[in-house]
Simulated assay, not measured.
Amino acid sequence: MEIFPTQYSTLSSSALNIKLAESYGLTGTTCRLLIRNVSDTYVIENATDKYIFKIYRDAHRKLDEIMGEIELLTILFENGAKVSKPIPDKQGEILQNFNAAEGTRYGVMFSWAEGKPVYAMSDEQLQIVGREMAAIHNITSSIQLSYHRKDYSVDTAIILPLEIVAPAFAELGEEYEYLMRTANEVIKQYDNFSSGFNYGYCHFDFLPKNFHFSDTDDITFFDFDFAGKGLLAYDITSFFLHFFLEFIQGKNTKEEARTAFQTFVAAYRKVRPLSEEEISAIPYLGFGFWIFYLGFQYENFDDWSNLFWGPKFLKDRVALIKKWMDTAHLLLPA
């Protein structure tokens, strides 16, 4: 019987468990689907070991980009960065492939990040994040990958995403006009950024959900799915977003947010330079962060964002962006 064309299948956990146990020489394992999202994430574990297995969607990540992520994480781990590492199978192969209903899907096994995300970080934990993010940037600012990864620029972070989402704002003209007007103002600021800004491969999503602290405060960074070339201040910005969100949700005060971020910055600067100009650019870089992911959500409506995407989400997101543009600078160190 002919298989009807498929755009996004979900691979069986039980079948994956058998396949991966054989490929990696594992025994007594279980496999469960953790997240069906941008990509599919499974937890593989037995009595002594635990792993993450990630299966990519071709519509989201082509083979060349997947290889770039593997290369980046391998370089980071080999140079001492605290990251979840890709794990080869018994034959030394890191990339696995599966003949799924929609065609070939690729998967990679990763080491488990011990611990859990911490949102109310202590001063010591903030210092650890600062030091270890700077250590990652010391590596990513001095390498050139063999494989392609996205470039983050005014075009890819602001201009193209705004063109992509325009149809979604057909009945929300006021909101779209605000985004376009603000984009023009932000782009003028981008033009003023100095050549002294640090540049390299950035994670582009350094929120606390993407790193774990163990019980002994060992940190592990993971989910480099969006890693690409750009201003390293994008990573500083995405981490700062956490304090902004905590503030507007009433979980901390302006002073607490500012002090916590300053603790992080001071620790970062003990490992590598971070200029006051880069800090001052955070409100504008943050606008690019919001707009980039808005475009991504629109493009992935069929496979991911249809559960939340709609007029209410767009109105709420534009209101959040307005709050960001009005508030972010007030939370930065004086």
Rank of each mutant, 00 (worst) to 15 (best):
147 Y>L: 05
218 D>G: 00
48 T>V: 10
171 E>G: 01
219 I>M: 06
244 F>S: 01
209 K>M: 11
158 I>K: 05
81 A>L: 04
158 I>W: 05
287 F>Q: 03
251 K>F: 09
130 G>F: 00
23 S>H: 14
327 T>I: 01
102 E>V: 12
46 N>D: 12
211 F>G: 04
205 D>V: 00
56 Y>V: 10
232 L>F: 09
143 I>H: 07
78 E>F: 00
84 S>P: 05
47 A>D: 13
252 N>C: 13
303 D>C: 12
47 A>Y: 09
222 F>D: 07
34 L>V: 14
270 K>F: 02
73 L>I: 12
139 I>L: 11
194 S>I: 03
124 E>F: 02
195 S>L: 10
85 K>W: 02
2 E>A: 14
157 A>W: 11
72 L>Q: 01
275 S>D: 02
24 Y>I: 02
27 T>L: 07
70 I>S: 03
117 P>F: 08
69 E>C: 06
52 I>V: 15
31 C>F: 00
209 K>L: 13
116 K>G: 01
83 V>S: 06
247 F>K: 04
28 G>S: 01
250 G>F: 11
275 S>N: 03
139 I>F: 08
205 D>P: 00
276 E>Q: 12
41 T>W: 03
1 M>D: 11
201 Y>I: 15
21 A>Q: 15
99 N>L: 15
220 T>Q: 06
148 H>Q: 11
261 F>S: 11
216 T>G: 00
325 M>P: 00
83 V>E: 09
261 F>H: 08
145 L>E: 03
132 E>M: 08
189 Q>Y: 08
49 D>H: 11
244 F>W: 07
264 F>P: 06
320 L>K: 09
185 E>R: 14
257 A>P: 02
93 E>I: 01
296 F>H: 12
250 G>I: 12
321 I>N: 00
121 M>I: 08
77 F>E: 13
161 P>W: 05
193 F>I: 13
96 Q>I: 03
76 L>A: 05
277 E>T: 09
310 G>A: 07
120 A>M: 13
74 T>Q: 10
34 L>Y: 12
69 E>H: 08
46 N>L: 08
126 L>Y: 02
180 M>D: 08
267 A>W: 04
19 K>C: 10
97 N>W: 13
125 Q>H: 08
74 T>A: 01
132 E>N: 13
235 D>S: 09
140 T>R: 04
334 A>I: 01
175 E>C: 04
